[in-house]
Design a protein around this nucleic acid. Structure first.
Lengths: 345, 345
DNA sequence: AGCGTTGCCGGTAACGTTCTCGGAAGCTTA
DNA sequence: TAAGCTTCCGAGAACGTTACCGGCAACGCT
């Protein structure tokens, strides 16, 4: 009983044809109930597992979804969980690959999955990626492809994202309302859409309150804690230092916080701070950090639903872009005016 | 140019046989250099991608590794990154599935991957899992299977883990050296190996210093922050409350910290706290939390190496169990005696 | 009795590869 | 010049499955 049993073995033992066994397996209508029972019984006994490979080869689909993400931090792994949830439900298996924010790695992963392993892709692009040929190759094979979280105008594909501009706006407006005057922003890499959109929200809020943006207060830096730490130190060393900082990720907020603490400044009194993502850590540090919450799990689910849809109907869905609303969670780091109706967490 | 090009198309266009094309592709020796060049050129032009499915079907191996993990938290996602690293190097693609610590989900995932999609498994078992039949099915098909991080004696398979007992010992001894007298432990679920091993280390340390273990101070609770919070509140409500707590995960340490703060106790003066995993958050909270660091990335790499080895040579490797050493990182939450040679971080 | 239905089943091609075998040229050698 | 050796190539089976087509009974109907 070494080799796994095949449909052939069953046919031979039952003295019927493989076609009949195949039909019985799929519970086709035109097969006798007795035969069906016999096949079922034997396949149980032989511990028969249909060979997905052969099936996939035949019908040219694998029921696998390739998911490519830049990393598996809190937000993205939550999104992946959402994807997994509805994918499983719909009979799909997901293959997750991390690009580690590396362009090269992203290409390798794409190629690998493209080798007829998956039916399509759900992608969040790496921050390093500026050219999208490897993804366009997917579309040329007209496989369904959905982008999520980090969508980009350079990629014509159905996508789901959060309203980053609104998030940036909420954060900035909140800081303004709290009486902060010189509000800096730690934006991410310049070519990253989500970064620029959050920046746009920031600018929009400034405009609404007639505050002239100061380019010295707009810092582009890499998406991580250490860079944010350095950038914040520089900000705080300015003659006219900012009295509030909005960072477009919580990682960066943490970096900023460390720099602020090191400088001996108090939050929220001397300086206000708002992050983005609402990672658990924001409510654990002292002071707790205000942050823009995004519905990550939900976003993952929507991404997968879009994919399934694109899979089944093949109308052009490239224009579709679902947008989910983020929501600012106010905590200690930015609240220096007592709330009207105590929303603190 | 809709359907993807196959080896057949190339053969037809070049007026040669498919066998020759196949050979040329694989750079076989018995094919004319000119033919080889022609094939290469045309395959380039047609954007030919070999069909991995057909290949896998033929040679009965997929070069995929099924990785099943209970979740994708900091430690595990780091380990997965390690696995990915060496797997890619060796020409394997990993398929990650989360069981969400659910027994049922674990079974579903295993079945799914078992449907001839993968050549073998690298597994970290869910905390809910008490019976291992679904994994034994893997071994019956004699596919290679490696367990990592959470290894269990109920599963005869090569594995790699950290020396959990030593980690528990280091943490507890450190607390004792710091002068704490009543040291409690928040252990995990009772059937989880890593939980019991860390507990063993705790007991060993107590024994070494001739401290009688107190069963009231040994709490089994679920592997998460909320339970730890509740458990700690109960601990602190005792008549003779503990003056130190060792938790077997940082999540739990966070929960404990919250309860301690709420009670108005100071760390490390009134109470000491040590966690496990050395997650980044431990150095961000106030006070920073001492924690046992484990070489997660390295562990993932070792797991994958073991897998590759098991894949290629088929001697019995079930006895192999690699053990990596953890290392206590001392921070504020437990250090109330000035260090001899300032190791604080 | 002839006819069309219905219910059940078998044969075979096909999916895209690789692998084994055999064989046709062209060259060298005796 | 026949034998043998290279060098290169083609035919066909096989991997496990499904899909299409056709066939043969048995049955009911006119």
């Amino acid at each position: 009983m070494n080799k796994p049993a095949t449909i052939k073995d069953i046919a031979k033992q039952l003295n019927i044809s493989i076609s009949t066994v195949s039909r019985a397996m799929r519970n086709a209508p035109d097969v006798n109930a007795d035969t069906k029972r016999a096949v079922m019984a034997l396949s149980e006994e032989l511990n028969y597992q249909p060979n997905k490979l052969a099936l996939s080869l035949k019908q040219k689909q694998t029921h696998n979804i390739g998911v490519i993400v830049p990393n598996l931090d809190y937000v993205l792994s939550t999104m992946v969980k959402g994807i997994d949830e509805v994918a499983l439900e719909a009979g799909y298996t997901v293959m997750v690959c991390q690009s580690n924010e590396s362009f090269g790695r992203e290409i390798v992963n794409t190629r690998r999955l493209l080798d007829s392993l998956v039916d399509g892709f759900i992608i969040s692009v790496s921050s390093e990626t500026k050219v999208f040929d490897h993804f366009k190759k997917i579309q040329e094979k007209n496989m369904p492809m959905v982008v999520f979280d980090r969508v980009t105008p350079f990629l014509q594909a159905p996508g789901v994202k959060i309203d980053n501009e609104d998030g940036g706006f909420q954060a900035t407006e909140h800081l303004i309302e709290q009486g902060y005057k010189r509000i800096a922003i730690l934006a991410g890499p310049k070519n990253l859409g989500i970064s620029n959109q959050r920046l746009d929200g920031y600018l929009k809020a400034l405009k609404k309150y007639k505050i002239k943006p100061d380019s010295d207060l707009i810092i582009y830096c890499d998406f991580n804690q250490d860079y944010a730490y350095v950038a914040t130190k520089e900000l705080l060393a300015m003659k006219k230092r900012p009295d509030a900082i909005f960072t477009i990720s919580d990682r960066m907020a943490i970096g900023a916080m460390l720099a602020i603490k090191e400088k001996g400044l108090r939050m929220p009194q001397d300086i206000g701070l708002v992050g983005f993502n609402n990672e658990p850590v924001t409510s654990l540090v002292t002071p707790t950090i205000s942050s823009v919450d995004q519905p990550a799990f939900e976003l993952g689910k929507v991404a997968a639903k879009l994919f399934i849809e694109a899979m089944h109907h093949d109308e052009d869905m490239n224009h579709i872009e679902e947008v989910l609303k983020p929501k600012l969670i106010i905590r200690e780091s930015s609240q220096r005016i007592a709330p009207k109706n105590g929303r603190t967490k």
